[in-house]
Design a protein around this nucleic acid. Structure first.
Lengths: 222, 222, 222, 222
DNA sequence: AATGAATGAGTATTCATTCAT
DNA sequence: AATGAATGAATACTCATTCAT
């Protein structure tokens, strides 16, 4: 039961496609769950179908292959969200430092810490073995996502709030703690007997502080 | 390029025996290559054997299972190096800021940027599906590694060079960019058509700067 | 010649469905043949599937493992028959001597001399290496079977027709020639060049005579 | 450490062969143990070698194949004993009833209840899958053994002590309880949780009684 | 004589995908 | 539209036998 972002495409799609949008919602939800839990190749399509309450054959009626199923999951659970996110950020009015903090916290809350975050970890894990998926994900998620962050940093620089830094490198640096948080959460973080876990919110706060500190335009730059 | 224990056996052994002595090393090297390239479950033991130039059966002569082969690879390529690393750090005399920068740069050069780094990424990827390996890796690598970083931070605090920060959280923050670098390198970083790659050294330098900035004990704490 | 539940489905099912209904029976029949012919471990599931006219995968659609396939064969070909047998014996009215002769002859005809008999021999042969199967067979076949024989002997004693003998020991003694017959038939009895084979019916008649002679209540026990 | 029956072949064998007779004693003993414990095909030659304290290669130095090893075990542990047995029986002077009882009890004590007995069970179990072994065993053990029993029965008839019975059938009947005892002992008899076990000696006594009863020449056959 | 390293054919089980109904 | 029966390629691990030393 994903809160499917109303992708209301007015009339540009055929009847068939709209059907396809409506019905396979349960399949996508089931697939999201299982992909996040077990990864791409370790997830069996039969289990996805079973969790969605349909037969294996039915799944292939809607998605021509496991790969396409995965792509659909990504589109459904990430791409849309990313677009929303971009809009909110573009609309933001206040100081960039505030925007950056908000963006990171919000991303964690609305993406990283949800099942969608599991997809990011999964893609890191399996990109090497599934070039087609990697390519798709790069185009649909990573490129736009990086662009988003770059725009924030650039905004800070343009407005004289941040120092002149290498924007793409800084984008990587900003992404790193978030990805690490996700990767940890979906790997060793799940193990019962580990004592390494930190509180994500405190961690993010600390990172944001660190970054703002480092980005801050030197005021005494006379 | 495993630093296989100097096999300089003068002349005391026959050709066959020399072969035998070399086998584990050859197999471990082949396994390291393939595990890093394809991950744990996507690597077939037969391919490991083939790359080492032996038959499937021979591999099982030296390692009782794929799992044990993997553990041996970890011991061979990571555990030892970690220990060396710890010694160097313990022996360091200068200021902690320098130590931290050195540690991060060195780690990247001698671990992260080698095949051993691929193992770290692999473990993140597959920990969820192979609890036994996850447990092993946590105990043999993650716990000691985290300890190492914590000791550096603690040293800075104890010597009055760093601010009082939450040590474990800071350890996570310090690890994040390195893990991200590795994960990126072994996933999307390998793709030909991506434009996101940054220079690792510049990236690390920037991160170190950021951290030192954030850790610096406020001098005006009058 | 399994008495497969009368598959006389009027016309209510499609060809495919009819196929599906028949599958387990076909597989069980094939498995029975091969298990009897080659034993448990020497029988390859692939051969069972091939003899049933399906692929390897199909077999695992109906039986989760070779072990479970075997258990199903036992249930199908022995357990049911044993129950029938018990009922007939319980219903018998005449003298116990007659009952005993009838039981032994019938057993040979309807169990021992059929493929089901081969299963008994197989279990003797492989019990040691497959404890799970041994346990199963002991509970499902041997215990009930022994009980059956004990009841016959006890009936003779209770009715004053047989001498007071140790019932369990006598049960073993009664079973011995039947098991021997079976073991012989499925081992050396199959060899072309052996001259040891006797006529089973004559053999059974002789054994029955021997037992009745030995069991007969001494009339002159004044 | 088999009490190898001194097969003292004076000078008929080469130096090499005599060596072969002496050295592989430990291998034969180990093989006997393992064959009895696990059966022919489930026994690994490597385990035999290990138990004998030599390497796998050495085993093949003395025995060209697993099959030949087995034949050697049979010759060593059964054939010789059978010959002894035949001599004792031929030398017996008393009444045949006594001879028969002695033979059965002795056989159990000196063959059936030893590891040699395990071989008999093993052969019943695996004859079907190893025709070469079956043929060998038939010629070397079963034929002579059956002959032995037949001669006892014939002796009884000739001396007017036993009724005129079909000798080969009676031989089978006499063998049955012994084989059953052995088969049971080496299959379900080994299971902890079974309650079917009877005392072998009591069982044999009962059987002997039964047979003698049935064989006894009717004195009042007027 | 003795070793033990090396082989490779053999086997139970899994799973994405197809397709007749 | 929906089913679920059928497939067969794929994979970790075993073991009798060989042979260079």
């Amino acid at each position: 039961m994903l809160p499917v972002v109303s992708t209301a495409e007015p009339a540009s799609s055929t009847r068939r496609e709209r059907r396809k949008d409506a019905r396979p919602g349960e399949l996508l939800a089931a697939a999201l769950d299982l992909f996040v839990e077990r990864g791409f190749s370790a997830t069996r399509v039969e289990d996805v179908a079973a969790r969605a309450g349909v037969s294996k054959g039915t799944l292939f009626l809607y998605f021509p292959s496991k790969t396409e199923l995965f792509k659909a999951v990504v589109r459904e659970s990430i791409v849309g969200r990313l677009r929303e996110f971009a809009q909110e950020i573009a609309a933001f009015q206040g100081p960039t430092a505030e925007l950056l903090g908000m963006a990171m916290r919000q991303w964690w809350e609305r993406v990283g810490n949800t099942k969608a975050g599991g997809i990011s970890k999964l893609m890191m894990a399996e990109a090497g073995n599934f070039p087609e998926l990697a390519q798709f994900y790069l185009e649909e998620v990573i490129d736009p996502g990086t662009g988003l962050i770059c725009r924030i940093v650039q905004r800070g620089i343009d407005r004289g709030e941040f120092r002149q830094v290498d924007v793409p490198t800084m984008a990587h640096a900003l992404v790193a703690p978030m990805m690490h948080l996700i990767c940890w959460k979906h790997s060793f973080g799940m193990m019962p007997c580990n004592t390494q876990n930190t509180d994500p919110d405190a961690y993010i706060t600390q990172c944001v502080q660190l970054f703002l500190n480092g980005l801050e335009a030197k005021p005494t730059a006379t």
